[in-house]
């Protein structure tokens, strides 16, 4: 008796063994449909975005260390950061935005300054009773959370701007309770807003480049040497790892990419036309 031809249908192949397949079984299998090879330059430029955010976090911590150890006058730090922010704000509004919103911006700044001054004694005593080691560990973890969920410009479900901002504000709140006076705590909160709210807005507009990254990293490394030489070594090796080694590994690993696509994939609605 001649067998009927095998078909890919569970209930139709009574004469064939259960594990039987023929060459038509995987004819719809396709591999790496959406694969776009990424060049070394692109992947290194992408890695600089992470370096920028890491450097921003370190700048914030350096300012905290300066305030904590009284290495610098609080007013001096406040006026310098405010001057830098003003300069960046003018540049941002001149090149990328309209001047018309200036009144609104001024209102926001005033609101923040007044409420920051008013509430800094409360915020400053909020985590006062927690031990310093716990505060540092918690701040470290929150900054890790900030770096993980920060928006690096890729559309992925894990990215959450609100979570990353809340985490880092929480970290700066924790750190501010270690300072001597409420005024210093207020300065630290202001610096954290500048670093983590305003600076990413500016960096989004500036197209990332190797020159900007290099200047930024050298500046941060210079100020880090005044805090700790060991940390500077760790910082530089981390930057080299993120910005040189990781892109190289990424390029090398692209050849192992093996995404399979086929009729078993979930349906994607392309267009619905009910009139036909």
């Amino acid at each position: 008796m001649k067998k009927r031809p095998w078909r890919k249908n569970l209930y139709e192949n009574q004469e064939y063994p259960d594990n039987y397949t023929d060459e038509s079984f995987l004819k719809d299998l396709r591999v790496n449909v959406h694969f776009q090879p990424i060049s070394l330059k692109d992947s290194t430029l992408g890695a600089t975005l992470i370096v920028h955010e890491l450097c921003t976090v370190i700048v914030f911590v350096i300012i905290y260390v300066y305030l904590y150890n009284h290495w610098s006058e609080p007013n001096y730090i406040f006026s310098w950061t405010c001057g830098a922010t003003l300069f960046c704000f003018v540049a941002y509004r001149t090149f990328y935005g309209s001047i018309r919103t200036f009144g609104y911006d001024l209102q926001t700044v005033l609101l923040f300054l007044v409420f920051g001054q008013l509430f800094s004694p409360i915020l400053y005593t909020l985590t006062d009773t927690i031990s310093t080691d716990t505060i540092y560990t918690m701040s470290f973890l929150m900054m890790i959370v900030h770096l993980i969920f920060f928006d690096y410009g890729l559309s992925v479900a894990v990215v959450s701007n609100s979570l990353s901002l809340s985490a880092v504000i929480f970290a700066s709140l924790c750190l501010s309770s270690r300072l001597a006076t409420p005024y210093e705590a207020f300065i630290l909160m202001t610096v954290s807003i500048k670093c983590f709210v305003l600076f990413p807005l500016l960096r989004n507009k500036i197209k990332t480049s190797f020159l900007f990254t290099l200047i930024f990293v050298i500046l941060v490394a210079y100020f880090l040497t005044t805090v700790s030489i060991l940390m500077t070594y760790i910082f530089i090796s981390t930057i080299i790892f993120i910005n040189v080694v990781c892109p190289l590994i990424f390029i090398r690993f692209q050849k192992y990419k093996d995404n399979i696509y086929g009729p078993w994939d979930e349906a994607i609605v392309q267009s619905i036309d009910m009139t036909e």
Partner: peptide, 16 residues
Amino acid sequence: KMPEHTPAPTPHRAVY
């Protein structure tokens, strides 16, 4: 064009 929470592989997800 894919919905955000699809399990299908996308280039951005590959980077993450």
